[in-house]
Amino acid sequence: MIALLLRDLKLSLRAGGGFGLGLAFFLIVTTLVPFSVGPQSALLATIAPGVLWLGALLACLLSLDRLLALDWEDGSLDLLATAPLPLEGVVSIKALAHWITTGLPLVLAAPVLGVLLNLPAPGYGWLVVSLILGTPALSVIGTFGAALTVGLKRGGLLLSLLVLPLYVPTLIFGAEVARRGAAGMETATPLLMLSGISAAVIALLPFASATVLRINLR
């Protein structure tokens, strides 16, 4: 398992794009928002938590189609499926590697981008907390989508169509935590819901992903 995690991390480092692209995309989206809604700082401060959450979500989505497709194309998935690792473990590790290379950098970059959008001071902590709790769910759900579409020639667009509706609950509760935090309101309820969703998704969805992957490998 650890060997697989290390290999995936090494691969995304060497191929470039792993760490960098998602972050650059996040930066660009955040930069474009003031161009589209206007530079008024009060307006930006109101929408900042939501925009940052949405930006992080889209940046996560960006790299999903390569999550399993590369291993599919070069036959590694066939070999991994016949290896002693359970496929549930393989998809979990893949999701973890995706989170480390995509989710974690986004969490770290979010406060910096918050400055650009005039995020109110109490919001920074909550933004980071909500992203730390929410982005793992995004990676795990995304892995399920990637497993569904892995055998398709042009699965990228379909992958977004399948995964985005599944992101709704995570986005609602995650952005709610950040928004309430920024407004200085109580955050316990959405925070608990967000953690609950992440925990349930991490515990259960790998089984669905592995099932789907086995079907695709047939």
Binding site: F144, L148, L162, P165, L166, V168, P169, I172, F173, E176, T189, P190, M193, I197, L205, A208, T211, V212, I215, N216
Partner: peptide, 25 residues
């Protein structure tokens, strides 16, 4: 048939979750 069935089941769970999330929101 297999993949859409799994998607339908997983989607149902997420649809119910979304319903509650949206109510809350």
């Amino acid at each position: 048939a297999d993949l859409t069935s799994v998607l339908c089941i997983v989607g149902s769970v997420f649809a119910v979750l979304s319903r509650y999330a949206v109510n809350f929101w």
